[in-house]
């Protein structure tokens, strides 16, 4: 086993070089490079955490914005619905009013027309009566030769008409 056989010869140089090598690794790499690497990792972790937090914040902001937008939209919807309902109601009322007015006008026209009709019928009737009285008088005069006075003829015609 050379490790034992050579021990006395080599231990000094082994220690010397080993301590140099370990010292360089310890101070240059272990205390120099490793902290830098760790710092980089920490920085990256911090950055990722910050980015995530910012993203979360933005997400919350977007959610509130959406909420607000939704509320506005809902409000606008409700308003629009109210406006249309009101407009509909008004239009219906207006239409009712106009229909009523037209009805009234028509009724009035109808009344007038029927009044005129009545009048016409009455005057026609009176004329018929007068003509009937005349005719009666003439018939009586022709048949009997006696003269019937106008009033009596009229009364008789009216009586006959009312009986008919």
């Amino acid at each position: 086993m050379p490790q034992l056989a050579q021990l006395a010869l080599v231990y000094q140089s082994q220690w010397f070089w080993l301590l140099i090598v370990l010292g360089v690794i310890y101070f240059f790499v272990g205390r120099g490079i490793v902290p830098k690497v760790e710092e980089t990792v920490d920085q990256r972790d911090a950055q990722i955490a910050a980015d995530l937090a910012a993203a979360e914040h933005l997400r919350a902001e977007a959610a509130t914005a959406e909420e607000a937008w939704r509320a506005t939209i809902n409000e606008a919807h409700a308003e629009a619905q109210a406006v249309t309902a009101k407009a509909k109601e008004e239009a219906a009322k207006d239409a009712d009013k106009r229909v009523a007015a037209a009805d009234k006008r028509l009724a009035k026209k109808l009344d007038e027309a029927s009044a005129a009709l009545d009048e016409a019928r009455r005057s026609a009737l009176t004329e018929v009566e007068a003509m009937a009285a005349d005719a009666t008088r003439e018939i009586v005069a022709k048949l009997t030769g006696s003269k019937v006075d106008d009033a009596a003829a009229r009364t008789a015609v009216a009586e006959a008409l009312s009986r008919a």
Binding site: L9, Y11, Q12, S13, Q14
Partner: peptide
Amino acid sequence: ELQASPFMFTNSALWML
């Protein structure tokens, strides 16, 4: 020759480096 000296440069020292 291999000598008992701390400054002896050996194959072991070379591979350590």
